[in-house]
Design a protein around this nucleic acid. Sequence first.
RNA 1: GCCCCUGUGGCGGAACUGGUAGACGCGACCGACUCAAAAUCGGUUUCCGCAAGGAGUGCUGGUUCGAUUCCGGCCAGGGGCACCA
Length: 868
Amino acid sequence: MRPSRYNFREAEPRWQQAWEKARTFETRTDDPRPKYYVLEMFPYPSGRIHMGHVRNYAMGDVVARYRRAKGHAVLHPMGWDAFGMPAENAAMEKKSHPATWTYANIATMKAQLKSMGLSLDWAREFATCDPDYYKHQQAMFLDFLSHGLVTRKTSKVNWDPVDHTVLANEQVIDGRGWRSGALVEQRELTQWFLKISDYSEELLKALDDLPRWPEKVRLMQANWIGRSEGLMVRWELVEATAPEGQRELEIYTTRPDTLFGASFMAIAADHPLAKAASENNPALAAFCDECRRMGTSQAAVDTVEKKGFDTGVRAKHPLDPNWEVPVYVANFILMDYGTGAIFGCPAHDQRDIEFARAYALPIRPVVRPANLSDAEANAAFDRDAAPFTDDGHLFNSSFLDGLTVPEAKDAIATRLESILLAGKPVAQRKVNYRLRDWGISRQRYWGCPIPVIHCESCGTVPVPKKDLPVKLPEDVTFDVPGNPLDRHATWKHVNCPQCGGKARRETDTMDTFVDSSWYFARFTDPFNAQEPTTLSAIAKWLPVDQYIGGIEHAILHLLYSRFFTRAMTKTGHATLSEPFDGLFTQGMVVHETYKNAEGQWVPPAEVTIESGPDGRRAFETASRHEVTIGSIEKMSKSKKNVVDPDDIIESYGADTARWFMLSDSPPERDVIWSEEGVQGASRFLQKVWRLVGDAMALPSGNTEEIHPVTKAAHKAILAVGEDIERLRFNRCVAHIHELSNALNDALAAEGSGAHGDQIKAAARTMIQLCAPMMPHLAEECWRELGGEGFVADAAWPIGDSALIAESSLILPVQINGRKRAEVTVPADADTATLEVLVLADLAVQAALDGKPVRKVIVVPKRIVNIVV
RNA sequence: GCCCCUGUGGCGGAACUGGUAGACGCGACCGACUCAAAAUCGGUUUCCGCAAGGAGUGCUGGUUCGAUUCCGGCCAGGGGCACCA
């Protein structure tokens, strides 16, 4: 006997086991059908999955299951982004080894993901902390090294002087170390870099070839790469003022047209000239030290007050040897960008004008609006007004006078290129990029070791490939701060692979972004023990057809992966440039917040919502005390507005959780998790169960005519398919609701059983359309409706647009753009016939009220507009 | 400061490429079933108005036979980037 309610607790695990036993979702590499690679960003094993994961993986699973049904060989793998700081923090706090902690979390989260019933190929699972994974990463690093894609240079880190440890930006809070509370200093360390900046132009240009990426993400990447065209200009220093050995100062500018408005030079505290000038100037040295005490994060640099210090050095204007400008050290000039030096033109730059006002420097306007004369512009100039940064015409600028800004940029570049200083042109055109090389060195234990050995006589020597992997030692302690690899008793002491002499291992590990920059490639053949990738598998499966993840990875992860794919291709590990053909960034999961009378946050699980005509009220379930409903915010531990996926799956089942995640909200926007919403989803599942049961109970029978339910079914097939392809899951849900309503109507009207076959067919269609979103219930119903095998293996139904066609349609009629009537007309009537039909209609006649018709506009199958 | 996105009923949202604004769902209300409740089913639900009718997609102006959609200005909310020369 069929139960009247669907029992998900019994059915869901049963179908999960059945799929697993049948190995339904394992991908055969030699599958001859057209491929489709669906990938969701793999999770960090933090301990438990959260609702954001549920949303992300529910979306990916719909795409994967739909593509399977459409006859694709689908690759839909899952793994773990398993290296990173939280494991070390847990090691310090809970005294568990990072590996133990990480693998335990993976086990928990894998069980949670399995309970969602995702169509994943678990046979391909790996964690980036598996030596079997990172040994290939080390091999590729060595290949990158030999192909000139790796460099070693100094860069700054946040140094905690108390804990003697390097801090991540997120560990620096208000300029202090998060544990020690000590003021953070900048320290220079020699570090390993991947030369992503060699690909700046390429990575920028290729953004145009990614039409299936969100415009927003491409724009963010373009801004991050930050191409600018400018001029490198060398300024001769006034000899009497310059430190020993310093003859000139080179700056980079994108506004060379404003050179005649120059009033000062500003250099970074780490600029060689600043260091040289500091030697005999303790006050300047102290100022440079102060600049260095800022954190290395941009946020830290941003919030600091703009300050400068006159070095006493003077520079000669390149076009007027008698014109001298002062050289300042300024805390807002970054050594990393351009040459670490600028010239300031206060009249035409916001930052420069603030600096000039603060240090009483001259402000000379050189660009005027096109509608003013030179004299008017000079008269109108105001030191205290905002700088003029628009395009205009040059004045007060010698041979540039009267030119537009672009003309002046070109003219001054041409002039300066022909002037020689110390035998070389004083200026040179230069395209510059904001994008910097990718520093991958981390002074931490829980990461992929950089496979290099430092030998006193041979220098840096790559670890021979036969010695890979360089494995992390297991016997490490976290009771003191600092890098456990560095203080390990034996690990770093090795013999040099070249000379055999005493040497030491590199103790830095790789940035975890390296791990995630090629995992998608490894998934195409994770079984290859010899090589990182199998080229035939890369060629077959890449690029990823649909990549889905959070917008927070819009820049770094996606840009690094694009670079890494190119680097892999250069070193023979891949055969393409762009790893992700289609990208989708989903919104966050948000929830209401609740506060009790004492002002404490209350978790949703302890709150009961009651709604009536006066709105919604919330009560603590246990005490019945009313709580205040607060704003809707991203789920976070601090506000306690977190809903645990396990609790939801336990109370409602995986299908309900998935269905609700996909309903209502457009996937790129935030979705509000609410108890009412999830209950609505649950009710719909039961409705599907009931409709299928009622349909099944009908006797067989058919008539020639096409029943409305058949039309509804075919309409839904076409609409749902199109909307899945465009990732508009909320609309899919609406279409399925419509079909279920049509089915409900058909069942209610069915007395004699004359249309049994058509109604049953419509029920089957509904189940197939539901299957990508609520796979367990769909399997259960599919079996009942006599479907063969798994619905997961069934071909997607084919919609027949001919069945939907109507012989007549209702056309709205507007008069002067206002809807006044509706006229039923034959679907195939031509424009002239329509005009006659519409004008003859009684309701139209009444609305026209005898006014003369000036014009009739007919939009076929849409609307008729009469102009009177 | 710069850049981007968003703004539609009580709520989430729909409306293809300029062509019937409010699909679908949530909530609410009314009714049926029930001793009763839950569940379920049926109906109503943009606002004003008894109605006829009118208004209406953040505000404002424009283009158009016709604007949620295109353009200008403004307001509000969200996000990203940044002393980037």
